[in-house]
Design a protein around this nucleic acid. Sequence first.
DNA 1: TATGATACAATCAAAAACATTCAAATGTCA
DNA 2: TGACATTTGAATGTTTTTGATTGTATCATA
Lengths: 261, 261
Amino acid sequence: MSTIPAGRQQYILSLIRSEGTVTVSQLAQELEVSELTIRRDLDQMAARGLVERTHGGATERRTLAVEPDYPQKAQEYPAEKAAIGKAVAAMVEAGDTLYINSGSSTLAVIQALAKLDKSITIVTNNADAFWACKESENIRLIFCGGVYRQRSHSVSGSLASLVISQINANKAIIGVDGFSPSAGLTTPILEEAETTRAMIEQTVGSVIVVAAANKIGVVSNFRTVGLEEVDVLVTDQDGGDIVNQMEIPKNLAIVIAATTL
Amino acid sequence: MSTIPAGRQQYILSLIRSEGTVTVSQLAQELEVSELTIRRDLDQMAARGLVERTHGGATERRTLAVEPDYPQKAQEYPAEKAAIGKAVAAMVEAGDTLYINSGSSTLAVIQALAKLDKSITIVTNNADAFWACKESENIRLIFCGGVYRQRSHSVSGSLASLVISQINANKAIIGVDGFSPSAGLTTPILEEAETTRAMIEQTVGSVIVVAAANKIGVVSNFRTVGLEEVDVLVTDQDGGDIVNQMEIPKNLAIVIAATTL
DNA sequence: TATGATACAATCAAAAACATTCAAATGTCA
DNA sequence: TGACATTTGAATGTTTTTGATTGTATCATA
């Protein structure tokens, strides 16, 4: 077989495409190199986004790195998301006007708020908010305008910013794809980043970021704002553990949502 | 078989997708691991929301975590509305930018357009447009901002007008509650009337009104525009009969949508 | 409703896979 | 050839996975 790294990795990739998964030991035998070499190959390929690394081997990437497929992502880790949603909803008081951006985590917040049905105003660009609030008599729902993005079930862009510039809220509830001390809050879609930034700029009260463990420490393509703009981070148990080992601004409060069942 | 967790879980998932349910003992035998390992796999997958755990095994998730579940509006005269929608959709050409306001008749137009899937841009304040266009790759959907009205599944008000002021369309497809020579187009909600008027003002091409027979000759509370602003009226057979006995502007074309079934 | 069979949760120890560091082998360019 | 970078493999300790064990919860059928 190929004795150079590039050839090996190409073979690994083709095998992953046909089999779905590969194991380190199997590849080491087949290519007659040490398992360590295979691990290094897989790590490199994972860093380039070609495969997904798992314990013992690697799998095919389910979705493109750029923009996650909505229905798949939306139902990942429902328990954690529901817990986060509940915790955030508890921070909301009657009379509040909230900015809530799009994403499956913030949808969980909307669902929790819909259940409580306090008299609040929600300003959002999440298209799923409509049905989530369909039985909440006391929630006033204001929707951002803009270009609809099928993949994320949301609207964004300059039209959304235009609407947002007209509204001041006293809390912002922001879901992100990346939360990092150095890079701040990041998302894979430029327009979403712009819309989210506009929401934060129009918020006079506290900015609450929701991010499950798999978002903490991650850096995505486009920056919305730095962590200094954030007042509260709501995450799950694992996320809390990661944050504890990071250098974060002192004024940023961490809230752990317990997955109590 | 795959000896790593990822491969096992992938196999389990594919099996669940085809069979509907799986049992722990069956999987343990098939994959040649202990039942305990299978249980751990299933628990992990359940935590991620991929499967539903049951006693002794797992089943496919029957309900998606996110389910619009729109109460399909108790459609009055579905056949007539579908016919009107089809007739209007036939007037739309690739490249068009359309204003479409809210209402069950115009929703039928959107549904017909979604089926054709021409490359057009739809600007609407109808919240149901999201799911109606969910499988139309070529339709660009721009949503108006504004306050959401549960009863009509739409947004309206000054924020909607603000967005509309930024966009020029070459056709407007307008549903109304009242169509009358003397009172013009009328609707029972002030904000909807304002939004619809703004749409018509921003249209440089033809204004197409859709109205079933039960709207013809009716006068509702708030006036949007007079009939002189309308270029085409699309109605059903009965509606055509009524219009024929009316005094309408000469430049207003009448189109009868045949209920061919 | 009681009861035996099965599935489960919790804990622990062994095995496998891993990260990390370092040195040897290989290839490249002057 | 010699200096340098790249690739590879060995050795170390750490983490993850796995299966055996125990006792508990749940199910099906009488």
